[in-house]
Design a protein around this nucleic acid. Structure first.
Length: 744
DNA sequence: GAGCACTGC
């Protein structure tokens, strides 16, 4: 790493990527940015060239000698990112997982998600799968399943993880001739699942990815005219529906992982039900991993439920005899108890967030040091989505034989990520869940009891590679009486304005069952502005801001701001013990009290000036991952500008123009200063405060426009910019009159 | 002077 300049480092990375991409094209006949990341990620985790081969095999990719050669080449070329790789001295000598616990984490490499993990789950299973699809549980049901699909327009399919439904059903449909009438779509909640399953199926069918089998996700469309089996994210299908409301080019839509109930799947349900009414030739398959599928069946007019058996190891569940007073304390005690009394096997603890995980880590370390050498080594790992990539690496590293791993995780380990080698799960029964009050437009994250479905999902994480045990830190009685059956679906907990906008564009006007503070007005939707707004995959207010930037000739700046805002609040990282430096770095973008929106733009521009340097991100306590995502979104927005005929224009020195564009989108989010530093929102008056992380927190401008209000310890406005009150009347005369902005 | 569960277009 020494001596490489900022740009040099990037070039080196790009050269490596280009090389990997070329090799993949030759070897597999396909390549894509995500696949390149995937391959490099594998090699980074590997401890030897043979290890790379092993990992490739796990994904069913090492089927030729050339690929073995590739493994050796890539291993020698990939730099050591985190720490010098130890030679694998701790071989898995018949242990039960301790010492070889493999963890597969998504964001290190942006590709491993649930469906891919299904494939890599058990090696023996995978090998047989690769040899012969006929050994899958689903195969015995092939003909009766096809018969059921033929007989019913809508079919609910229940199949546990590992039954092969995601990879096999589309192939069966292809074999049965459905693809002669149109494409078969299979939707996934996560990008990586769509991508990896498509790659898998293309291998099974012995075709090049992107030909007969393809995938389509945001930023990557890997399909062609030849494509008949199309894996895609559910949100992507939703976007396609805007252009093809009857889905005429499809003969079958399979909504996979429907039990996750994302907003997109829920919206798809409603639209598909409607489409099925006037397109009698289309088949709808709803696939769920939860046994209770009656809700899906009821929704689709009592559609029949088809069950496919799965494979799973038994999990022994234990409850506490009495309620525990402090679940964090109880969890730590349980970890130590398991460590001392139970046979080998790693431990997974579900906690609610970063802060809790970090304090648990401290306490555990302290307690263990008290035991000295009396007990075997316990290796502590942590995982949550905001943890920077380089710190996630610990979860991949082999641990000494005779020691045990404990993973402190958020909900990320419940469905998005699988850690192999876990035999024990500790479940305190809580998680953080988003709630959104549509009346006030306020969001909050609150610690809540989990649902029964969630508890069972957590327990199941211990039984993936062998029989498991789950220790629930609550009583059997409270499980029965206090836990809801299911987590309320996301659609009931989140801001739906962009969903509403999309549905309105589809001509669905009657959405008044929801109570919105600021529903997009009907007139906005039939004008050019409305159509332009719907062209952007963003919240309506962000889209409006971009559309307005045309008028103020600052679209170049505004799309950067929109991209940064839509990445969310995970731009900055503040590690334990370095908060002062992190704060200082963050405030350096606020010079001149420009406001948080302009500061975000400054962050983006500074990063761009370093040629998108990773090192720059580390130095400024900025999350690399978030910045790359912002860059992707910004690139997409730039392309979309052209489509809606907005010119890309910049006005780097006219901050007022940029602020006016922001105000055009967020005019309903205005607030004026009260006494004692509090603010009052102008319409629907409410007392709010500037979030302490804001660059204007100590500045108290008289008028501000804010991105959002969040409820934490107080009601805070997050991301605020100063505005002149007369702009409100100028920009949004239908919303504000002079009396609203007059001094009281 | 406070805090960021997890996805996706």
């Amino acid at each position: 790493m020494s001596g490489d300049s900022k740009s040099g480092k990037w070039e080196c990375n790009d050269a490596l990527k280009a090389w990997v991409s070329d090799r993949l094209l030759v070897l597999l006949g396909f390549s894509s940015p995500e696949f390149v990341e995937f391959a490099i990620g594998l090699a980074k985790q590997a401890t030897s060239a043979a290890d790379v081969v092993g990992k490739l095999e796990e994904y069913g990719l090492a089927f030729s000698d050339d690929l073995h050669l590739f493994a050796e080449e890539i291993f020698s070329k990939v730099p050591w990112k985190v720490s010098p790789r130890k030679q694998k001295t701790y071989e898995n000598e018949g242990g039960t997982g301790t010492g070889s616990g493999k963890a597969v984490f998504e964001d290190q490499i942006e590709f491993i998600k649930e469906s891919m993990l299904k494939i890599s789950k058990a090696k023996s299973e995978l090998e047989t799968l690769h040899e012969d699809r006929r050994t899958l549980p689903i195969y015995a049901h092939r003909d009766s399943l096809l018969k059921a699909i033929e007989e019913h327009q809508v079919l609910v399919i229940v199949g546990e993880t590992g039954s092969g439904k995601t990879t096999q059903i589309p192939q069966y449909l292809h074999e049965a001739g459905y693809t002669k009438r149109g494409k078969v779509a299979c939707t996934q909640p996560r990008r990586v699942a769509a991508m990896s399953v498509a790659a898998r199926v293309s291998q099974e069918m012995d075709v090049k990815l992107g030909h007969e089998v393809g995938y389509s996700i945001r930023f990557e469309d890997y399909t062609s005219e030849k494509t008949v089996l199309k894996y895609m994210t559910d949100g992507k299908l939703l976007r396609e529906l805007l252009g093809e409301p009857d889905l005429a080019s499809y003969s079958v839509i399979m909504v996979d992982e429907a039990h996750e109930r994302t907003v997109s799947t829920d919206v798809l349900f409603g639209l598909l039900k409607d489409i099925a009414r006037f397109r009698k030739d289309i088949k709808i398959l709803i696939s769920s991993a939860t046994p209770d599928a009656s809700k899906f069946s009821d929704f689709f007019d009592c559609a029949p439920i088809y069950r496919i058996p799965g494979r799973r190891y038994p999990v022994e569940i234990q409850y506490t005899k009495a309620p525990v007073a402090d679940y964090l304390d109880a969890a730590i005690v349980t970890v130590l108890q398991i460590h001392v009394t139970q046979p080998p096997g790693d431990i997974l603890v579900f906690l609610t967030g970063q802060e809790e995980i970090e304090s648990a880590e401290e306490i555990l370390k302290h307690k263990i040091s008290g035991f000295g050498l009396e007990i075997p080594e316990l290796v502590i790992c942590k995982i949550f989505s905001n943890l920077p990539t380089e710190l996630q690496a610990k979860i991949f590293q082999p641990i000494p034989i005779g020691s045990r791993k404990v993973v402190l995780a958020t909900n990320i380990a419940e469905a998005s990520l699988t850690i192999d080698g876990i035999n024990y799960v500790i479940d305190p029964g809580f998680c953080k869940i988003e709630s959104y009050n549509p009346r006030t437009g306020m969001e909050s994250l609150q610690v809540t009891s989990i649902s029964k479905a969630s508890a069972n999902q957590r327990a199941g994480r211990s039984g993936r590679t062998g029989p498991g045990k789950c220790f629930r830190l609550y009583t059997a009685d409270s499980y029965k009486t206090k836990f809801d059956d299911n987590t309320p679906p996301e659609i009931q907990r989140t801001n739906l304005t962009s969903v509403v906008l999309s549905l309105k564009i589809l001509g669905i006007q009657n959405l008044l069952n929801f109570d919105f503070m600021d529903p997009p007005s009907n007139e906005a939707l039939v004008t050019k502005v409305g159509r332009q707004m719907a062209g952007f995959p963003l919240d309506p207010m962000l889209s409006k801001m971009i559309v307005a930037s045309d008028k103020y000739k600052c679209s170049d700046e505004v799309i950067s701001i929109a991209a940064m805002l839509s990445v969310g609040n995970s731009i900055f990282y503040s590690p334990n013990g370095e908060q002062v430096h992190a704060d200082h770095a963050r405030m350096s973008f606020h010079t001149g009290n420009v406001g948080d929106h302009i500061a975000l733009m400054n962050v983006y521009n500074s990063w761009r000036e370093t040629n998108y340097s990773t090192q720059w991100c580390y130095e400024n306590y900025v999350q690399v991952r978030s910045m790359r995502r912002a860059r992707d979104i910004r690139d997409q927005l730039e392309r979309l500008l052209e489509r809606v005929e907005i010119e890309l224009t910049g006005c780097p020195n006219d901050l007022q123009a940029i602020k006016k564009a922001i105000t055009s989108g967020f005019f309903s989010h205005s607030a004026r200063l009260q006494n004692y530093g509090s603010y009052r929102t102008v319409k629907h008056p409410r007392i709010v405060h500037i979030h302490p992380s804001s660059g204007l927190a100590d500045n108290f401008p008289r008028w501000v426009v804010y991105h959002e209000v969040v409820l934490t310890t107080k009601e805070y406005m997050r991301n605020v910019t100063e505005l002149k009150p007369e702009w409100l009347v100028e920009i949004a005369p239908h919303y504000y009159q002079m009396k609203d902005i007059k001094d009281a």
